[in-house]
Nucleic acid binder design. Structure first.
Lengths: 176, 176
DNA sequence: TAGAACGTTTAGTAAATACTAAACGTAGTA
DNA sequence: TACTACGTTTAGTATTTACTAAACGTTCTA
């Protein structure tokens, strides 16, 4: 392999590392995905060690996270007990998986914290000061309906089966 | 103010802190926004110190970031040299501002790293091995067109003037 | 049953990040 | 000019996070 090509691949995975970090994922996750995405064949854990510079442990945990998010698929060879990993190439599918993953964790909790507060207000907490009570009710209700809208959006994207470039184009046409 | 109400407010800002962290922003940013969002009147830096538990320095920098993202507005009183801050209540407006902010920074760079790699490939780097060269071209082109689609989406959202709940509903109707 | 070849888990460490405390700059005020 | 009231910047620190190295458990093989 030419040095230039090696360099190109390194730059690419470096770029993906940045993207990964940017979206709040570990840098290494991006790097691992990058290596897999540029590989024509599935790679074993040891091959990933060689190509990414990370150690087994790090790759083991990161690759598991990637699998959960649907960005990486596990494959095996008959008579070979190694695990092999390959990059998912349908990014729209991945988006759905990632949203689904996030939905269950922190996202739902965020919504709950608002509705919990709202509940208490409606039960009468703080109603001694009527104007403030009214103000808080208003604000929290507005926030809740915003979250509900987002939640609905996320849920319907997660449900979506045939999402792809045409879906994006349809949305674009709405946004004028 | 009742203890219950104080507690409710604290729980709420705690919740916003979590959300903030989740989306890759400092925890304190969420807390500051939470305090402002629950205040009927704009607050000064010192009032924020009292209500958020953070120090002046932290608030100064966080509030600036919030301003840039359009989540907080600065207001002043005549004959008073303090700065006063209030929460933006139009969240759709905020989304646009946040996307705009992010677009210019990391997001664009990510796209560039892909197209840079693609460029080199098309200039012939790595073409000694024809099948691999072809493979890499294919993969990078797919990734680039995905990024382009996202970029278009983000750009049109940023441009959007009257975004609101109806926009969300329109999109929902498309997603069936 | 012993050994080898795996992936996983853990304990410790390095690196990144957000904060505090205090110095600082600047602009109003006596 | 000196003093005060601000917001900002900086240097240092605490906390969090992601990683390494190594121990570990399990499964296959001789």
């Amino acid at each position: 392999m030419t040095d230039q090509l090696t360099q190109l691949k390194q730059d690419f995975t470096e770029g993906l590392s940045q993207i990964s970090k940017f979206w709040g994922f570990p840098k290494g996750m991006g790097a691992i995905f990058g290596v897999l995405y540029l590989s024509p064949t599935p790679l074993s854990l040891d091959e990933l060690v060689q190509n990414s510079g990370l150690t087994k442990g790090a790759i083991s945990t990161n690759v598991r996270a990637l699998s959960r998010m649907g960005l990486v698929r596990l494959s095996t060879k008959l008579g070979d007990r190694k695990d092999y990993y390959e990059a998912e190439t349908d990014f729209y599918k991945s988006i759905r998986a990632i949203l689904k993953e996030r939905q269950n964790n922190e996202f739902e909790l965020a919504i709950q914290s608002v509705s919990k507060a709202l509940e208490k207000l409606e039960e009468g907490v703080g109603s001694e000061n009527e104007t403030e009570h009214q103000f808080l009710l208003e604000r929290l209700r507005a926030l809740q309906s915003f979250f509900d809208a987002l939640d609905g959006l996320v849920k319907s994207v997660v449900r979506l089966e045939g999402m792809g470039i045409t879906t994006v184009e349809k949305i674009l046409s709405i946004l004028k």
